[in-house]
């Protein structure tokens, strides 16, 4: 073997080695990642993803693209993600609609066709009255409902929603009967409470916070595990009504998604939640950080799905 031949072999080895290390370094993520929402541009789920994407700049080195796939009460977005490649480049920004729709209607895919990645936030739910109302606590409401069964007008959203579920559970736990009144949006309900057309309402804290500060609305309690940060009102649990319900916002990928990508996103979410500018934003819109890793999130979804199914049976939406 001549000297040149040795050089050649060395060169080949070097090139091979370099390209191997290069391949080793080309780890997830190497191309833009798509975040899918079932909301239209500007709606809640869309803004959640757009803000998350914005604050992940600098943490995730590739572009994050938000895609709107509305329609079919989230089933289109779920199907799209469930049938995407499993390499971790398509993720779904989920809300409780993910669980509700497949229970009510026959959809091609459900959350079981997705791989939970991480939960990010909870939207705290609260019970409120207008400031002219005599009620100061959920106990007053229960008292009044016992005197006038079925006559307290309790504003909530559509059966199947978290709001309606809370109205249902309050009746069950406190053994009272109220008249639930359906509103399509939290804003419409707030006007009806302010105008005295209904006696009380349940909704997202973010929707009523400004009226609380203006003294037009009084929050009786939240339905959270722990007190809402910075809030003066108790939880329902403290008052002796063990009801904990919230709206989750988390990320899921297609079933069988690359575990490395799942772990990558778990780290990224934990990191972004600590970022001061992001914290300032999510505190201003009253989102409570509620990180869960993929195992916890899976268990949470299973549990929530069972409760939801039981409740929908109790109110006769499903058999």
């Amino acid at each position: 073997m001549g000297r040149n031949a040795v050089r050649l072999w060395l060169a080949v080895a070097l090139v091979l080695g370099l390209s191997l290390t290069a391949a080793g370094q080309a780890r997830y993520p190497t191309k833009p990642i798509v975040l899918v929402t079932h909301s239209s541009p500007g709606a809640g789920g869309d803004l959640f993803l757009r803000n998350l994407a914005k604050h992940l700049e600098g943490i995730v080195p590739v572009p994050l693209v938000v895609e709107n796939r509305p329609g079919g009460a989230s089933s289109r977005a779920v199907t799209y993600v469930a049938t995407s490649p499993k390499d971790g480049y398509v993720l779904y920004g989920a809300t409780p609609t993910l669980l509700q729709t497949p229970i009510i209607a026959k959809t091609p895919h459900s959350y079981l066709d997705l791989q939970p990645v991480a939960n990010v936030f909870f939207d705290p739910m609260i019970l409120y009255v207008r400031s002219a109302s005599p009620w100061r606590s959920l106990r007053d409401v229960v008292e009044a409902a016992k005197q006038r069964p079925g006559q307290i007008r309790f504003g909530a959203a559509t059966p199947g929603s978290v709001e309606h579920m809370i109205a249902h559970e309050v009746q069950k736990v406190a053994k009272i009967q109220v008249q639930p009144v359906t509103f399509e949006g939290g804003g419409d309900l707030l006007v009806a409470v302010l105008g005295g057309h209904v006696d009380l309402g349940v909704g997202e804290y973010a929707e009523v916070a400004s009226q609380v500060q203006a003294g037009q609305v009084r929050v009786l309690n939240s339905f959270t595990e722990r007190r809402v940060p910075g809030a003066a009102f108790p939880t329902a649990k403290e008052l002796g009504f063990p009801i904990v319900r919230e709206k989750f916002r988390g990320l899921l990928g297609p079933k069988g998604m690359d575990p490395e990508a799942v772990a990558y996103w778990e780290r990224a979410i934990q990191q972004v939640l600590r970022k001061p500018e992001y914290r300032q934003y999510y505190e201003s819109v009253y989102l409570v950080p509620a990180y869960m890793d993929h195992v916890q999130f899976r268990l949470y979804l299973d549990r929530t799905n069972q409760t939801l199914r039981r409740y929908l049976k109790e109110i006769g939406v499903i058999r």
């Binding site: 559509t158 059966p159 109110i315 939406v317």
Partner: peptide, 12 residues
């Protein structure tokens, strides 16, 4: 579509 009061689908 889904009836908001009953929570069930209509004519879907």
């Amino acid at each position: 579509g889904i009836d908001p009061f009953a929570g069930t689908p209509r004519f879907a």
